[in-house]
């Protein structure tokens, strides 16, 4: 295995990680501030991708589509918070699970009702297709480099937002003591709606960006939702830093596992069997990673609630 291939795979892992971070940051904020388990977070990912595909198709501009996708997901998030989630803050976690499970069904089938059963078309704009040649004569798609860039920008923006702004101060206050900020006269319900919409918007952005590389179809948010949960649990719930590191860890481990486990098993197994066993183990790898981390650090790597 050459070094250039390893570097390329590391880049792939980082790229997967940055997109997971967009999903996970919203999820972890919502949990950290409101204590809410939101299974429907993957639905905002899907809403973002569908809105982007629809708007891009009608306007011809990917950037307009992207803005529309993010806005649609944020609006959907705000509406869901106002209509449903708001009533659940004082209810047990289990009621939240049931309600957000119901929301998944409503979003998925509602989307299918509106857009039909066929996957939608969404491609990166022509100025982002193609590849660059990396050192070692490896070709790497420009679009994936852009995704990494967007992920880094969002991570920095979130850091600034949370550590430097008034809204960020309230979010931090909300994470450390929910009753306290109410007593301090902060309009909690507005704060909650804003945080929820922000998380949904980030999920929508991830869905739109990744949707251009993948299939825009009903149910696309569910696999990534499970991965995002793995990320925030590994990172420590409520911690943006944990979400970032967890996302990168999951992205890199998952990518490298898929490549190198089959090769590893080939050392002492016939090739086709090794591929099968390697692929099976690679599929389980991040869950094994998560179980090991939680077995030793039951609150994740960087818990905000210690």
């Amino acid at each position: 295995m050459s070094v250039t291939l390893l570097i390329e795979q590391l880049l792939n892992g980082v790229q997967l990680g940055t997109m997971l971070f967009l999903m996970a940051s919203g999820l972890t904020l919502v949990f950290g501030v409101m204590g809410l388990i939101n299974l429907a977070h993957g639905s905002f990912y899907m809403v973002g991708a569908y809105a982007t595909a629809a708007v891009t198709a009608s306007t011809g501009s990917f950037l307009t589509g992207l803005a529309a996708g993010m806005a649609a997901a944020a609006v959907a998030g705000a509406l869901v918070e106002l209509i449903v989630i708001r009533r659940l803050y004082h209810r047990p976690h289990l009621d939240q699970v049931l309600a957000t499970f119901a929301l998944i069904l409503i979003f998925s089938e509602g989307t299918r009702w509106i857009f039909g059963s066929s996957p939608l078309r969404l491609s990166p704009p022509s100025w982002l297709t193609g590849f660059v040649t990396l050192p070692g004569n490896t070709r790497y798609p420009i679009y994936r480099l852009v995704l990494i860039g967007v992920g880094i920008v969002i991570a920095i923006a979130l850091y600034v937002l949370i550590s430097r702004t008034r809204l960020g101060m309230r979010i931090r206050a909300g994470e450390s003591d929910r009753e306290m900020i109410g007593a301090l006269g902060v309009n909690i319900s507005k704060l909650y709606t804003v945080v929820f919409a922000l998380g949904a918007g980030l999920a929508g952005l991830a869905g739109a960006l990744v949707g251009a590389l993948q299939s825009v179809q009903v149910g696309m948010g569910e696999p990534v939702l499970i991965l995002a949960f793995v990320v925030i649990v590994i990172g420590g719930i409520g911690s943006i830093k944990g979400a970032l590191l967890g996302a990168l860890l999951v992205g890199v481990v998952d990518t490298l596992g898929r490549v190198y486990l089959p090769i590893f098993f080939r050392a002492f197994m016939p090739p086709s069997e090794a591929s099968g066993v390697g692929a099976a183990l690679a599929a389980m790898l991040i869950y094994i990673l998560m179980a090991i981390i939680l077995a030793f650090k039951p609150k994740g790597l960087f818990s905000a609630h210690d």
Partner: peptide, 22 residues
């Protein structure tokens, strides 16, 4: 030349594409 097995429902194929290129 080689047999690659992916995961069910996998959505990202960057790793496999790199292997095919190599």
């Amino acid at each position: 030349v080689d047999e690659l097995y992916t995961q069910m429902g996998q959505t990202d194929y960057a790793a496999e594409i790199a292997q095919i290129r190599a």
